[in-house]
Design a protein around this nucleic acid. Structure first.
Lengths: 213, 213
DNA sequence: CGAGCGATTGAAAAGACTCAACCACCGTGG
DNA sequence: CCACGGTGGTTGAGTCTTTTCAATCGCTCG
């Protein structure tokens, strides 16, 4: 659990930030913030993976995004002054830094580079989500699985995909059983290889094809 | 087609903006901007309705949002410096004002109220889209139709909903035929009344129920 | 008044979900 | 070291929703 006093600053996708922060370790499945709670600051992922998700009316999770090292999470609700509409939970051992709301908003006001970076980031995500919505609405589960795998290839940085079947299903937006059946198809088609829960990509070109990219 | 010289300023959801603009009329189905083109500024809807949509791989439209008077559209891509990822088209006779990129970005830099309003707006929309994604992924078409109607009640400001069946289907994310069948169900259940293409809401409480709110 | 497009209906097929059972791996405690 | 229990993963069967395709209807605009 470190603490910085403006020396050097915290490292993010938007460059190093010059402010106070504190870091701590999160265990797998540990909650970063809950849907409905009020934001007290932003979180920057130092190391690890964090799923951002929402619960549907029947309690089923829908994973909206998986954030990796360098990404900041939890700042959107801070701007709206409303409680979190999504939750965040560590998918593996992670190290995450916290920056207080005041500090962050102050820096936003005085640092145009950070500010523009944030605006750009928000805009990019909006475009991504329009894409996501269109996929959800129009594609078959098979196609969505391929699409999701492309995202995960990036998230896991070309390492094997390592998620529970349930998380994977909740990202694709389907039932766990359906997901498993499709994974089997992919396996039989030589697109992936599976070792217990780890998924190795063998034919990315084919995945691109199926995803319709 | 008016032209303003800083007198009074243009009126938006974020308050009046003090800058140069030019307005013009758009006919039904007229394009405001196309997916893939480069943003040259922002559009503010003076009067009318504009659908924001995206085409899926098979060319089917997915409506992401319907913007009404007072809303600004087309500024997200401006921040990312990438081409539009969505398209905008007038759903009815509309009057829309245009503000050049330079002017707008300059004002953003010097006007913290506008800037914070934009950031807040972007954040709100992100939350909305997380909701949208979850609905698409987890709800039945019937539930999604109810959810969509709630949005449209607001868009049409409690006037009857006046959209083509196809647009409605493309907003709900379903086939036109399925949508029509569900409208029939709603009609038989006394939830709505239909006059050619116009839909009158008769039992909003029930719609809320079905949407699961 | 006719053409044409949007709206509607029907029937069949496909896709996905649910439920129930079973399996396999993992860590625990005896 | 092994049996045990539990969780997560997998399979099968049946059902339901939704889509697709084809055909018909009926406004509305020239």
């Amino acid at each position: 659990m470190g603490n910085g006093d403006l020396k050097g600053g915290i490292i993010t996708n938007l460059g190093p930030l010059d402010l106070n922060w504190s870091c701590r370790a999160y265990k797998k499945h540990q909650v970063v913030f809950l849907e409905g709670s009020f934001p007290r600051g932003v979180y920057c992922i130092n190391q690890g993976l964090v799923k951002i998700y929402k619960r549907g009316d029947e309690g089923k999770e829908q994973i909206i995004h998986i954030a990796k090292a360098g990404e900041m999470v939890g700042f959107r609700a801070m701007f709206t002054e409303e409680p979190y509409k999504v939750a965040a939970e560590a998918l593996e051992e992670s190290n995450i830094c916290f920056i207080g709301k005041e500090d962050f908003l102050n820096l936003m006001d005085t640092n145009p580079v950070l500010r523009n970076g944030i605006i750009k980031e928000l805009s990019k995500e909006l475009a991504d989500r329009a894409d996501f919505i269109t996929n959800m609405a129009q594609k078959s589960v098979r196609e969505r699985l391929a699409f999701t795998m492309l995202i995960l290839i990036d998230v896991f940085d070309n390492e094997p995909i390592n998620l529970s079947r349930e998380d994977l299903a909740n990202f694709v937006g389907t039932a766990t059983e359906t997901l498993i059946r499709l994974l089997k198809d992919f396996k039989e088609e030589g697109i992936i290889e599976v070792q217990t829960r780890k998924i190795f990509i063998r034919d990315k070109k084919r995945i691109l094809q199926i995803a319709g990219k």
